[in-house]
Structure formats: structure tokens, C-alpha cells
Design a protein around this nucleic acid. Structure first.
Lengths: 372, 372
DNA sequence: TTGAAAGCGCTAACAC
DNA sequence: GTGTTAGCGCTTTCAA
């Protein structure tokens, strides 16, 4: 990642891309005019105060602030000096109203405590900041009501665009009313909604995981899935089903479980339950690493060794996956890139509202470790 | 995809701002005036459009919008109907400028991928939203430059207040220039900076952990610490040192390590290194659970069993701590409450800038599991 | 190259 | 109760 070799830090220029940096400077405590202006404004001087101090018009100050080049160097210096001396900071509330943009990007996640989302969010944040936007992170808890209310922030102009990681079912409902709103889908998407998206091929990825288990000689393979509200859950389930069928195995419904949570706890409980039945699976495919980690714990709690008694495969390849015992075999998703791509798609859509922004699928990868 | 003149969605067709075409949701596609107005406004009607439609003044609409009670019910209904029919949404950009507040709270964390911070952030978010604020999450990477630039958002009026979870050293530098800015410190704080804070008694907590190890019969106890830039790192180290001394043990410097990361990976590497030396510790106290989990992994990689060969204690009690093998003995921090309290302190400071907001210390708790 | 002035959409005095 | 109006601080024509 290359950085501008100037003195301004990357984030410092973030708020106002392409504008001259305003240095943090102590206001001159002995200047009565500045003091009066400050008192009037409640908080530091306004652009008018700077103009007065520099002996120019507000228009000129604005030009300098925004890095326009039609300002005589001498004038610019005067203005810069006045800005410096007064400790002026641009009021983004005013600028935002005037330019009719908030420079905020909304990111809606079902659960930002989940390490999988955390990494995606980081990708979004990086790209957003590179382009002078800030990211407003919203935890929806996958609740349609909250989802909808956050979405409304777009209409209220509180955010310029949104990235949605919530279930496709929710997006669908949202989509009907909001085709025209500037948003993109990440990980979860319904191509039918007609909204730009980025994700992976969940069907094939799940198949890859199951085929790996099959290659290891397993025939009774369990599936610990999340809520089927999620598109990925349905797609991965289908991938699992078809991979088994293709291997000539009739999938037993008793091997499958649907959970309404991705917590470690949920995985542990489910695994223990799975093992209760006769002819229990000799391998388990969990649709998320957090679930898989819980599964390993649950297995251990009922006296099963991993992978000797039961093999476990996860999904996502969060950083933790390599650290647990045994290290987790899993499907790696390019989390960072997922986030970065989502942000870029959104920015693209913002820059050119009528452009036809595509859906994109990123590659996944099977990572074989010791758990399966 | 081209723009469809027909079936315009309620939101899209909402407009006819500042003009008298009063009609139901469906805009007349053949009305050039409406089209022009919509194009000009770019996005839906303004308060003036609603006023016109309802046959009242903008002041009245504003009153209804803000729930003032000095509006005749009949009038209010008219206005509500007009709002409804036009699909009006308040423009918060304008409102924010007028009221001189952004209703955004900034939260600065060194690393939001860390589950410890994630839970705190959730606490902040909950309280913020209860009070009509949104939370802007900023990952500083504990970089002073980025820290400072985020801080400047307060001065640029982009956020109304901030909660800082970054190292105390950074806060100190910030504090000098920003005593007056509305912010509070969470977890990390320097009482000398004179800023409201919430945290725990790290010194005593670390002592509790070490005393537990001592009680288990360990004499050679290692410390895997983070960067001493963090106040908590220094406090926990002192707690560790004093607990050993109090037990009549001369702490060996070779038992201590300082890491510049809290990643699992870092803990694993450090633990492996610690074990290389003769007379290696029989117990390790890691100042964070993520580190401790890495430590367990690292120990295992050099053939040590936990807790039989080496006992491990962590700090934080993230949800994962109970799930790994062996389950982690750790110091529980009230993460959620930490976040909630921080948010409340900030809100309090915002509501009453000159009030003397206190520093508060929340209780911790030793959680004994199998790792030590 | 610079300045004057018109708003962006909203809230809140201040009148009536 | 309701309307009129003056800005909030900024950007951006349009003239000079």
C-alpha cells in the first residue's frame, strides 16, 4: 500500500480529499477579535472570521480550503496564515448541507462481534477512508426492523450509501422499496433484487469441503448449518447435499441441524446433540468457523476426539482457526477483499448512479489442517 | 439499465417540492413541471413542499416533525397526511447544521477485530442508540497520527463526542491539546489528564491472577505482556511483580516478555520462546485472552501439555475463553458495562459540559477453569 | 484573481 | 396556534 509522501497522515486528509490540510494550531489567546468570534460561534471561528482576519472574502477562503488553483499564491498564504493563527476548523455540518453529501458510508452487519464480519468491515473501512469517506458501522442483529430503520438513514441523507451484509431475505424486502437507493450487498445477495453484490460461490465451496471429507473416507457426514434465512446457508446446504449424492450417498436428514446463531456455544450444543443418536456422523461440516470451534468443544465434552473419532471442517478461515487444537480444516474466504470490493462497488455506484454495476464472485480455497 | 418513467417507487416519485401539484403517490409522468422540480431537488420534497401540500407554513411542519405540542390536532393531521403522501424524509444534513450537532459519537479502538473491544463497542452502541446517537467506529491501529486526526473530527463538528480506548500515552498527548473537547476514556486512562474515565483495577486484577497461580503451587510464573505504552500493561505488570514479591519470590526478568500485538500468533511465538530457556516457567500469565489462547497453542507446538506441564491464565474472559481446550482460567472484565458506562459518561458530559464527571472503576472477577 | 450574494433545508425567535 | 423570517457556515455562480 503506497502512501502520499507528504506530511499529512492518510487519515488526516480523509475528511476532505483533495484539499489543503488545516494544521492543528493553538489559537492566539491574546487576540480579542478571535476571542469575540469564538464566543459568538460557540466553537472557534467560522470562515467569515478567517476571511476578516486575512482581509479577503469568504469566497477566497473557501477556495483555499478546497484547494482551487485560481488563487494568487500571495493571497493563499495570507489565508493560510489566518487559518493557522485562528485555529480554524472547517465545519463539516455546513459543508455537508451545502454539498448535499454526508461522506458517510453505512455498513450493516448482523453481528460485528463475529470475527468473520470484523475482517470484512476492516476491508470496507480501508477503502472508504482512502476515498475520503467514513464508515458508520451498524449492528442489526439480523433484525428486519432495525435493518429497515438503518436503511432509512440513506433517505434522511445521514449516509451517502450503504453496504449490507444482512440476510438475503431481508435484502429482498428492502430491495422492493429501495431499488433506487445507493447500496450494495456483500456476502449475502439475491441476484434477482438487481443490486450490485460481491460474494463467493457458496455452493461450490461447500461441495469442496464435503468432497474433502469424503476423500478422507467419511460416509456419514453431518451438517451444522445456520438459519436458512441466509442465502449462504441454503447454498451451502445444497452443495453439501449434492456432493453426497454425487458420491452415491443418501444424505440422512438426522445428520443436519439448523441453528439460529453462529456463537461458539451454539455449535457446542448442536454437536453434542448430534452425537446422541445411533449411527452418529463420523465427520461434521460446520458452515462457519465459530460454529466449528464450538463443535470441537462440544465433541470433546461428550468424550469424542477430533479428528480421530469425528472429523470437523469449518468455513471462513478466521485467524483463530489455525490456533485452536486441533487446527481447523476450513474453507478460506477472502474476507478483506470481500469488504474492499464491496466498498469499491458502492463508490462506483455513487460516482455514477446510472452505471450498471456488476455482481462479482471471489475465489475461495480449501485449507487443510488437522481437524479433518 | 435505463430509467423507467413509469412505476416510480414512492420514494423516487416523492417529489414535487415547492410546487402545488397535489396528487397521490403516483406522479403524473407527463407533468413537466413535476419532473423539473424533482430533477432540481434531486431527492424528494423538502419541508417547504410538505408545507405547501398541507396548506400550512414550514414552521408548523417543523413543529409537527419535532413533536411540539403547540399544534392543533387537526392541523397536525393535515401535516402528517402531507408527509405521508409525499414520502417526505427529514434532511438531517440541514437539521444538523441548524442545531449544531451531528448526533454522532466517535469510538476509537486500537483494533476492532479483537473480541475484547468488540464487546465493549457493543455496549457503547446500545447506550448511544438509546439516546438517539449513532456510533462512528474508528480503528486507529493505536497509531498516534490516526488518533489525532480522528480526534480532529470533534473540532470539525463531524462528531459530538468521543470515546477513546487507545493507549494512555496517546491520550496524554491528546489531552494536553484537548482538555476542553468532549471525550471520555475507556479501559485506558491517565487520571492526571483530567478526563472522565471508566476502567477496572488492573493492578489488583493481575495480582488476583498471579495469586491464583501461586495457590496452585507455582513458583516460576511467566508474564506475557503487551506493549508498555498501555497503562493496563504497566499496571498488570506491577500487580504481577508485587504478588510474586509478596510471596517471597524474586521475579526473574527472563520470565517476562513484552509484545507489540495481542494476536493469537504473537502469543504462540512468545510462549514457544519462553520455553526454550532452562528453568522455564511452570505457569504463564498472559494479559489478554487472545494472547493466552495463542500461548496454549504455542505451548502445544513445543510439546507442552496445559495445564499439566504449564498452567496458563488469561485476562478479559472473552466468550471464546470457555470454548477452547482446555477452557481458560482468566480474569473477567465487565466488557459490556465498560462500554455502557463510557457512553453514559460521555452523554452526561455532553448534556452538561461543566459538570464534573467522575472516573469510575468497575469490578473484575477471577474465573477458574481448567487451564490453571 | 477576487468579491458579492444566493441559497442548501431546517429550527426557533418573534409576531400576530 | 400559526406564520414570517432570520440565520446555521459553507460553496458556488456571476460580475467585476
Amino acid at each position: 500500500m503506497s502512501r502520499t509522501p507528504s506530511s499529512s497522515s492518510p487519515a488526516a486528509s480523509a475528511g476532505a480529499p483533495g484539499q489543503s490540510s488545516v494544521q492543528p494550531v493553538q489559537a492566539d489567546p491574546a487576540d480579542p477579535a478571535a476571542a469575540a468570534a469564538a464566543a459568538r460561534a460557540g466553537e472557534g471561528p467560522s470562515i467569515a472570521g478567517v476571511a476578516e482576519r486575512a482581509g479577503v472574502s469568504v469566497a477566497t477562503v473557501s477556495r483555499v480550503l478546497n484547494g482551487h488553483d485560481n488563487v494568487r499564491p500571495a493571497t493563499r498564504d495570507k489565508v493560510l496564515a489566518a487559518i493557522d493563527a485562528s485555529g480554524y476548523r472547517v465545519n463539516e455540518l455546513a459543508r455537508n448541507l451545502r454539498t448535499a453529501e454526508s461522506r458517510l458510508l453505512l455498513t450493516m452487519v448482523p453481528d460485528f462481534g463475529n470475527p468473520f464480519y470484523a475482517e470484512i468491515v476492516r476491508g470496507i473501512d480501508t477503502v472508504a477512508r482512502q476515498h475520503g469517506y467514513f464508515m458508520l458501522l451498524c449492528d442489526t442483529g439480523a433484525d428486519p426492523g432495525r435493518e429497515r430503520s438503518y436503511f432509512d438513514m440513506l433517505r434522511r441523507r445521514r449516509a451517502d450509501g450503504a453496504i449490507c451484509l444482512d440476510p438475503a431475505t431481508i435484502q429482498q424486502a428492502l430491495g422492493e422499496a429501495s431499488q433506487a437507493l445507493p447500496w450494495v450487498a456483500c456476502c449475502e445477495f439475491d441476484p434477482a433484487v438487481g443490486v450490485p453484490y460481491v460474494g463467493i460461490d457458496n455452493y461450490r465451496a461447500a461441495g469442496d469441503a464435503v468432497r474433502h471429507l469424503l476423500a478422507r473416507g467419511h460416509r456419514r457426514i453431518g451438517l451444522i448449518n445456520s438459519d436458512v434465512d441466509y442465502l449462504y446457508a441454503r447454498q451451502r446446504q445444497q452443495g453439501y447435499l449434492d456432493a453426497l449424492s454425487d458420491a452415491g450417498i443418501e444424505p440422512d436428514p438426522r445428520w443436519r441441524m439448523n441453528l439460529n446463531s453462529l456463537d461458539y456455544e451454539a455449535g457446542a450444543t448442536a454437536a453434542a446433540a448430534l452425537m446422541q443418536q445411533p449411527d452418529a456422523p463420523s465427520a461434521i461440516f460446520a458452515v462457519s468457523d465459530t460454529l466449528a470451534i464450538g463443535v470441537i468443544h462440544g465433541l470433546r465434552s461428550v468424550g469424542k476426539r477430533v479428528p480421530d473419532d469425528v472429523a470437523v471442517a469449518g468455513f471462513d478461515d478466521i485467524s483463530l482457526a489455525a490456533q485452536i487444537d486441533p487446527p481447523l480444516t476450513t474453507i478460506a474466504q477472502p474476507m478483506r477483499e470481500l469488504g474492499e470490493t464491496a466498498a469499491r462497488l458502492l463508490l462506483q455506484r455513487l460516482a455514477n448512479p446510472q452505471a450498471n454495476v456488476p455482481g462479482v464472485l471471489l475465489p475461495h480455497r480449501l485449507v487443510v489442517r488437522r481437524s479433518a
